[in-house]
Simulated scan of single mutants.
Amino acid sequence: MDLSQKKLFLLDLDGTLYLEETLLPGAAEFLEYVRSRGGCYRFLTNNSSRGVDAGLEKMHRLGVPAVPEEFLTAVEATIHYLRTVRSPNDIYYAVGTASFCRQIAQAGFSLRDTPTEDVTAVLVGYDTTLTYEKVQDACRLLCRGADFLATNPDLACPTLFGFVPDCGSICAMLENACGRKPVFIGKPDPTMIRLAWAQTGYGPAETLMVGDRLYTDIACGVHAGVDTALVLTGEATAADAAVSDTPPTAVYENMAQLLAALRQADHEKGETA
């Protein structure tokens, strides 16, 4: 992989650029360097618990310049899926945060607060406000035949103390109870990468997907046909990468090490130009 050819950097957030309120080593410097060399980046996150406004506020709080157009989320991928694949007459029961439900409703889709007879699909996100009542309502709907959709398959969300259950774990609980498997919409599906290409005009050869999870971030890049970089600041380990069905193109300890490699590649290209 020739890093000097890369102009579009697709970056996961949780476990890649930051952990909770802590910016990870090299993250801010990497973004600054990409801008200085005329490239661009997009933040690709499967975290559906908050909207772009919250993500933007967090980046600013961490001292990182960002604009709304730089965010591509699992919620946007879900909205794209609902518009292009599902019937406009579908009615959804959402297992998600208030922010998630608000974004889905603002996009023009019908939501119900209770498991009414007219609900055609259960839509599950990373719900940090999960209650047993929501779980029971979702089970009631799934057991009577409603479709099962979910924003992302991530099993755990990284924190400073370890991990907490993400959307994939919530879905596993529902699957165990109801015997139903969900259709997952976010990464590793390559929709967000394709949306990034449409926004920026770049293509596969100029793109690098960077993340900390093999089965979402790296698999997303593999499915889109782009080079990938795994950073070891989140879920996956180098040993995991060595036996993965979707191995990364390269592995780095953190964003600082990736930045050093990018600078070296640019330097070598300058010397041989």
Results as ranks from 00 to 15, higher is better:
Thr45Met: 02
Thr45Arg: 06
Asn47Phe: 10
Ser48His: 10
Ser49Asp: 07
Ser49His: 06
Arg50Phe: 13
Val52Asp: 12
Lys58Ala: 07
Met59Asp: 09
Arg61Ile: 05
Pro65Asn: 11
Pro65Ser: 05
Ala66Ser: 14
Glu69Arg: 12
Glu70Asp: 07
Ala74Arg: 09
Glu76Pro: 10
Glu76Thr: 14
Ala77Leu: 08
Ala77Pro: 06
Ala77Arg: 06
Ile79Val: 15
His80Ile: 04
His80Leu: 09
Thr84Lys: 08
Ser87Val: 10
Asn89Thr: 13
Asn89Trp: 15
Tyr93Gln: 00
Ala94Phe: 08
Ala98Cys: 13
Ser99Asp: 12
Cys101Arg: 14
Ala105His: 13
Ala107Gln: 07
Ala107Phe: 05
Ala107Tyr: 04
Gly108Val: 05
Phe109Ala: 08
Ser110Trp: 14
Arg112Met: 04
Thr114Arg: 13
Pro115Tyr: 00
Thr116Gln: 14
Asp118Gln: 08
Asp118His: 05
Ala121Val: 04
Val122Gln: 01
Leu123Trp: 11
Leu123Gly: 03
Asp127Asn: 12
Thr129Arg: 12
Leu130Phe: 02
Tyr132Ser: 09
Tyr132Ala: 10
Lys134Pro: 02
Val135Pro: 05
Gln136Gly: 13
Gln136Ile: 10
Ala138Gln: 03
Arg140Tyr: 08
Cys143Pro: 02
Gly145Asn: 08
Ala146His: 02
Ala146Ile: 08
Asn152Met: 06
Asn152His: 03
Pro153Val: 03
Asp154Tyr: 01
Ala156Asp: 12
Thr159Lys: 04
Thr159Arg: 04
Phe161Glu: 15
Gly168Ala: 07
Ile170Val: 11
Cys171Gly: 14
Met173Gln: 09
